[in-house]
Amino acid sequence: MKVGVVQFPGSNCDSDVFYVCREVLNQETIYLWHEEKTLHGCDFVILPGGFSYGDYLRPGAMAKLSPILTEIKNFAFQGGMVLGICNGFQVLTESGLLPGSLLKNENGRFICQWTSVRVENIKTPFTSLYRKWESLKMPIAHGEGRYFVDKNTLSSMEQEEQIVFRYDLGNPNGSMDFIAGVCNQKKNVLGLMPHPERCSESVLKGEDGLRLFQSVFSLSGHPLSRLA
């Protein structure tokens, strides 16, 4: 599988995602600069964490108008796999690829800590290697991660099983219904605030994020270097 990691000015988790895909999981991986007008044949596009355009105006607001987003929207519309982590999640909600929005944390602070996240839906290409209701240990690091969506959209998302991850030991940022990650109706676009790329190696004291990437890579039948 060919992976594209998008780089905006201000992205800062791009190398971590790139490292996990290429070095840990042995996938062909390239960087995609935000001004590019092609995805170079990538099968899986990841929008990493960071502070694209310095979070000016709103997190993800400027990034959604980057040339590469036009390509990503077309790609997603055709069923292409797109993952947004942290600021990448904010870019996906701003661009309308995912419902809702991310607001400043309820306690008004930047939160950087390990957190417990429950897998709500394993019938997505991103979570097929997890067990339903499994609790994962993943780090969060954000100032604006409070998920918000209007009540009508929320109930339709619940019906369509679009809520993929929920915080399960407390609600660190005050997200509506403990929501930590959501997907689109077609299940090919996922966004989450926790950082799976920061818990994909035992040296980092956690490997619960690895299966998210492996779930996607298992779709292509590519021999994975570290599949259990």
């Binding site: 105006l57 108008l65 909600t93 701003e94």
Partner: peptide, 9 residues
């Protein structure tokens, strides 16, 4: 709508 505000919030 294009940039200045997000009607969701």
């Amino acid at each position: 709508n294009k940039l200045l505000f997000n009607p969701v919030i």
